[in-house]
Amino acid sequence: MSEVVLNTVIKSRGPWATAMRRLWRDRAAMAALTCFLIILCMCLLAPVYAGWSHAEPFKSTLDATIQINGQTVNVMEQSTEGLGLGYNPIGPTWQLGNYFLGADNQGRDVMSRLLYGGLNSFLIAGAATVLTLFFATLIGLAAGFFGGVVDAVLSRVLDILWAFPVYLLAISLSIVLIAHGIEIGPITIESGSLWLPIFIIGIVYIPYVARPVRGQVMSLRQSEFVMAAIGLGASNSRILLRDILPNVATTLIVFIPLMMALNMLTESALSFLSIGVQAPDASWGTIIQDGQGLLYSRPMVALAPGLAIVLSVLALNVLGDGLRDALDPRSKIKLGRG
């Protein structure tokens, strides 16, 4: 065949490129993506900010002093209310690098902790999402494609996981595992490790993704193009990889931001209950817990991470909706039991 003709042909836009274009034109989704990326980048710069501000994000610094408008001020002031016992941390100075959002009950810089905490929150949510999607895809593909006994066994296991409310399961698992960590064969997770919440959150959401994937694979299994592939003599692995997975991929991609959002909420909840990220490490959940006691005097300590969670989760959800619309305008993928 003539090479010239082949090389001058413009590759037509595939379904992926079309979806990307559609997403690019979706203003709400792009705004959400920008918002999310800004928050993520700020959190990624946490060590830079900490190094520059000299404020201590992790060690308690009860006797530190700072300079504000030429005056030396204690980070922890003697409380003037009530019996005059205890200390009141400094409020927001609104000066970048100088206790911008004030200090918490240990005299630690809230702004710096907020960034480090965000880093942990994103890390846990992201890693748990990867974990969930990986196992859910494996389980969904196997159960949906092979059916029969494989499906029966896998579906029952998912049902058992599903029978527990997510938070109840996550909390129970955390409480049990937080003391001693996990040892499963070669895998060992220390009790204070970030991997513990990642593992727990990743596990509890597997059924929520595996179920829709299984359903979709089952219907794809009956589709004519899979019939055609069998008729061509394709092996099971070829059919799974080349015909089924690309069609399931859209669902999985839509799940990424939605699961991220859900995981961030779960992570905050666990950390808020002191069974997620362990001190002195921070996450948005632990900072809210720190701020709980200061809610009346220094509301910013709890408010700032709360706002950060709301913004991130909202951005991720809007992005997820946009992705869904862009990838398959007809589909109605929903999280949860539906």
Binding site: P15, M227, R242, P246, N247
Partner: peptide, 9 residues
């Protein structure tokens, strides 16, 4: 249209 995978060239 059903027997040709829509995601493959």
């Amino acid at each position: 249209s059903a027997s040709l995978n829509p995601r493959r060239r």
